[in-house]
Structures are given as C-alpha cells and as structure tokens.
Design a protein around this nucleic acid. Structure first.
Lengths: 226, 226
DNA sequence: ACAAAAGTGTTCTTAATACACCCATGT
DNA sequence: ACATGGGTGTATTAAGAACACTTTTGT
C-alpha cells in the first residue's frame, strides 16, 4: 500500500480473508507470498487496502481476484482487528476487517504470480509458516470460527457436489474438526440440524453398496438458543 | 462529522456503541439526541468518527465520554456495518465498528447536553424510537448479542455489587432474556457454568430468610463446544 | 402464627453417546 | 464367497425441565 496514493490517503481500512478448503482429512488455507515491502517475500493472508468508493465485501472480492485470480467465493464477515502501531513499516493505523471464505481447491484455478504476489499456495493449517503482519493471530481465530460455522450453516455446500452422500459429508466434518464420528450418530446429528434434504436417489461412488444422496436446503432457519 | 476536517478526511471509520443497563425487569439502552445534521434532533446510538491516531477502543471511549460524560464502561467489540450510500446526507463510505457496553445506570451520572448532543437518555428496548443512520438495525443485533454474551461471560459483573445473591443474579438474567426461570434450575445452571464462587457468607436483603453471597470468578475458562 | 422470600432434591423427558449386525456391489 | 463400505436400531448416560416442601426472618 503506497501511502501517497490519493485513493486511500489516510485510509485505515484493510480487508483480509482466510480462504479455506478441505482436502482429504485436512483443512488448507490459501496464502500469498508478498512481492513488496513491508514483509517482502513473507507469506500472508489474502487482502489489502479498501478503496474509498467500494463496499467492504466488494473490496475483499477485488483483493482476492487481484492476488489469486479467484472469482467466486462465499464470504463470511466475522471480525475486526486493530493494528495500530503493530509494525514500524506501516506508520498509520490500520483496521483489518476479516472475512472467512471456503472454496473447493480442486475445482479452483489459482494464478500464482501477479502484480503484488510472487506466489500463491495452499497450506495445511498444521504447517503454516510465520506470516506477515499479525496474520497468524487472525488465522487462528478464523479456524476457530470455521469450526463453529459448520455447525450452524450450509457453508460446506461449496466443497461438495450439489447432491452428496452422508459419508462424503462426514469426511469433511472430520477433516475440519479433526475428529472422527460414529457413522450412525453422525447421521442422526446432521439430520436433526435440519440443513439437508433427502433426494431419494442413490449412488455408488466406489463400487460398494450405494449411498443415499442428500442436498443442502436453500434456506436454513436460525437455530434457537432458547 | 464535518467532512472538511483534516483529522478524518476521507476517513470511513465510525465507532458505535450500544450501552445497556438493566432496571427492574427491563433492558435499557443509552441514546443521544443529535445536535447537528445529518439526522439533527434524531435519537441515535453513541458513536462517531474515529480519529486517525487512535485505537478503535480508545475512539469508542472518547466518543462515549464526549457525548455522555461516562468514563468507565466495559466494552465488547462484536460487529461491522458497511454503510456506503445508506443516506444522502453523508456522501462518503462509512464503516461502522460496533461495540457493546454494559453499565449500572443507577450508579452512573450522565451529562445531558454537550457539544454534539442536545439530550441523553435511557430507553427501554421495547420503546426505542426511530433512530438515525441504520442504528435500529445495529441495535437489534446488539440486543441479540447481549443475550448470547451473558451465557458465557461475567459481563453482568458491572450490574451487581462485588458479592451478590442468587436471586439478584436471576432477576437480571430474567430481565435480559425476558423470561422467568425456576429458582432451583436456575441455580443449578449458573453453578454448572462455573462463573461464580460461593463466598460462604449470607445476607438478608429484605428482612426475610438470608441469601448466600456469591462472587464472579476473575478468570472464566472458555466453554467447550466439543 | 403468619407472610415473604430463600434454600434444597427427585422425577421425567430429551439429547448425546456407545455399540453390532445386515446389505449391496465388484472381484 | 469374500472384501469393502453403507445402511440401520437399541440401550445407556447425561443434561434440561418440571415440580413442592421446608427454613429463616420480621411483624
């Protein structure tokens, strides 16, 4: 971010996104390697300064597209980080508005190099390097948030085909929560959450007994706390 | 906010706080009546533009003090609101960072009139007027958040003496959640949350059978989701 | 002795967990 | 016929909800 640029002169708003995917049994996060100072050559979450004439979410999407070539992400706003004085390289106050995204890494083409990045890659969340700014802290909170989110939303939609089987869904939950579940209890729990519908179809994915196909509901009612 | 002022020229960050108290069986929120345009003479949540050289939380506290004279509030950051183009009176984009506060209205002196406000008052949340900006929407989300917050924190500390009785605590929960609880079950529930300690003292508040005194724990462990 | 508010324990219902057997498909 | 993975039901345990009587104090 060049401070002299009128477009965000005195502008303290950054938008940051942690974009996750699940591969096998592991959560992966999309990181970029910075081309410029500060934190040149360091890995970081995807994000940057918001323009004065754009909405927050438009800003995140623009940054994601500019830095990785990714266009379609479902985003969840979830936190604010106050970064005043965190680093000498940036003399002004920054407020970072954090977003969480989830995409299917296998279906998504990323552009590895562009104007601001020298590399873009998926990292297993157990193997994330030391990141620029305070992005490690932000990332950790995002992971927690992701784990909460999947319990009350259809956020996993993007990781699955339109119609999917219970074992497919279970495997993604197990990857994200880093746990294993009993098949019967998992099914009971998910069905009780009321976020998926039975399609009354079956499919054999691996030449064994066919599995039932389910589909996420379009609309999810709020879960009640009381 | 005067747009020409260099201090927040092109500045899009507002900090907003909903400050609650509980009186009898009702939640009340602190509102200010605006002295200037836009929304002159309208009631609004307490807040304003952040200065370029201050932290978010310092900004909220400054705004609260300037507009109401209140100095000590415990604040919880909880949301971001993107207000681009919401009103013609403000031609620039605003990002509003919302905070939630809780104070004891009976112990707090508010200053009714000052540089930017013509009045400051507590409103029962059932009787909140039409507010400036999109503050009604923000307030509704804050109330929801407050109801969640009291289930996992000692935020109510400020509304009670250092040592308090179970019936006192119950009455505040009932006010906030707008429900009544069975005395026995409430006690069981609260004790199981592990947020208060028994002081082994008793007090008779009203000339009836004395009640046990409890005290909030200093540190509250995170409640586990799994 | 009575009114007012506080303390306490048990039963019932519901949700979460643990666990074992049968079924459909491909080789 | 056997190996692989998918489907299903029941028994146990833990948590939440419903509910009534006894105790202390002031009048």
């Amino acid at each position: 971010m060049r401070v002299g640029n009128e477009r965000y002169k005195n502008q303290g708003i950054h938008v940051i996104s942690a974009i996750f995917t699940v591969e096998g049994n592991h959560i992966k996060v999309l990181l970029i390697k910075r081309k410029n100072e500060p934190y040149k050559e360091k890995w970081a979450l995807v994000g940057g300064a918001l323009y004065n004439n754009e909405q927050l979410e438009d800003g995140v999407r623009r940054e994601i597209f500019e830095k990785t070539g990714i266009k379609d992400v479902e985003l969840y706003q979830y936190g604010v980080f106050d970064e005043l004085g965190k680093t000498e390289d940036i003399p002004m106050r920054m407020v970072a508005i954090a977003y969480l995204g989830l995409i299917d890494g296998k279906k998504t083409k990323i552009i590895k190099e562009n104007r601001n990045t020298v590399d873009v890659a998926w990292f297993d969340i157990d193997k994330v390097p030391d990141l620029a700014f305070s992005h490690n802290e932000i990332l950790n909170k995002e992971i927690e948030k992701l784990r909460e989110l999947i319990l009350e939303s259809n956020i996993l939609k993007v990781l699955l085909p339109k119609e999917f089987t219970m074992p497919q869904l279970q495997s993604i939950y197990e990857g994200i929560l880093n746990k294993t579940f009993d098949r019967r209890n998992f099914r009971k729990k998910i069905l009780s959450l009321n976020i998926i519908d039975d399609t009354n179809k079956e499919i054999s994915l691996n030449g064994n007994k066919p599995s039932k196909l389910y589909r996420f509901k379009d609309v999810i009612e709020d879960k009640k706390i009381f």
